[in-house]
Design a protein around this nucleic acid. Structure first.
Lengths: 200, 200
DNA sequence: ACGATACGCTACGGGAGCGTTTCGTTATTC
DNA sequence: GAATAACGAAACGCTCCCGTAGCGTATCGT
């Protein structure tokens, strides 16, 4: 976030931490409501944050880098798989992904990453800081399950990761063939389908 | 497309079918490259189509309805499951979805549907005309597989549909953890994982 | 030939928005 | 108290763009 000056007793009035946070929140709110980078205006960000435009531009040089910073700030703590069984671990991960991608967080991603070709920084930061760590965690869980004899030894780990992530992030994208009820039970349903397979 | 006047011998010069098509193509190209509704300008559409702005506005009253029309025009023919086995049918559907969502088509959807809250018409038309028919086809295939005894009788059809669609539309969104090679084999890998399950 | 309509092109009024600057005020250090 | 820097507010120049209107030309029916 904003070029980190060590709080080294600089003269003058210090930056307002409150403004920092208000701006980030405003960007994320607008990102969730409007249509991506092009749909957000700096004017709206400042107004929503209750802040002057100069306060925004003092921290970030332009719109794109402000949004990149806000998106990276979405990075939350990684879910911790308890490690008792592969099934339980997968369920924990599935629920975590589902939770993260519903609500504002999911909408931010979905809206911001449209037009990723035009703003490659956005997609890169998000993939490196948010997506890939989660995929890596899932790979570890799968490999541990294979080693423990709980999962098939010839499993295509990458395919399973893709299936699981894809399935859990789907509902946030294509709203409403689902009851809320179904959406809540989706992680359990998906893990069950995956574990048992659909064949007889 | 454009208020369908039956070609009923109106006087004067007829609308150019070539312009119709060029405009649609231009919208889709720009939708794939730029960032959603807000990222597209009518001047860019007209220029790309090699057409005057008036020719665009003669057909659609404003930008939003133009884009809605273009998105609905993405509707292609439904893939035809051969019906010899559930596995083969699912593979055909998976490959079809993967093919549709790679390349320009996928980018259009991904970019256009960001900010769906702000342009509900977009999402609605797309879901009704493109997404839902494909989900319904998949449900039919699954139910036929259950009836034929190839799939588990207690299968959660809706969960499987979500898993399959989610997995196949994933790569178009999160580029590049994949080799091209993996992306091509993804449908087969996913169907295999689904059929057999990941458990021992 | 004639009227009607579509065509590509150019121009326009009006608004939105980016990034900058200025201003008077407020908070913090020396 | 003096120096410094961040603050909110407002205004600026600039560019882009929406949707409309008018031009002269091209293409259709009669």
């Amino acid at each position: 976030m904003a070029p980190a000056e060590p709080t080294a007793a600089r003269p003058g009035r210090p930056r307002s931490a409150r403004a920092d946070k208000a701006i980030m929140e405003a960007v994320l709110d607008l990102l969730a409501e409007e249509g991506g980078v092009a749909g957000i205006s700096m004017e709206a960000v400042a107004a929503r944050a209750g802040v002057g435009k100069s306060t925004v531009y003092r921290r970030w040089p332009d719109k794109e880098r402000l949004i990149v910073a806000a998106l990276a700030a979405l990075k939350g703590p990684l879910p911790e798989p308890p490690g008792r069984s592969a099934r339980e671990d997968l369920l924990v991960l599935a629920r975590a992904i589902a939770a993260e991608h519903s609500g504002r967080r999911g909408r931010c991603v979905w809206n911001a990453l449209g037009g990723a070709d035009k703003h490659p920084e956005l997609m890169n930061r998000y993939r490196e800081e948010v997506l890939e760590p989660r995929r890596e965690l899932m790979r570890r869980v799968l490999r541990r399950g294979i080693a423990a004899g709980e999962l098939r030894a010839d499993l295509d780990v990458e395919a399973v990761v893709t299936v699981l992530v894809g399935a859990m992030t789907m509902p946030g994208r294509a709203p409403a063939p689902f009851d809320d009820d179904v959406a809540e039970r989706l992680p359990d349903m998906v893990v069950d389908v995956l574990m048992r397979g659909i064949g007889v």
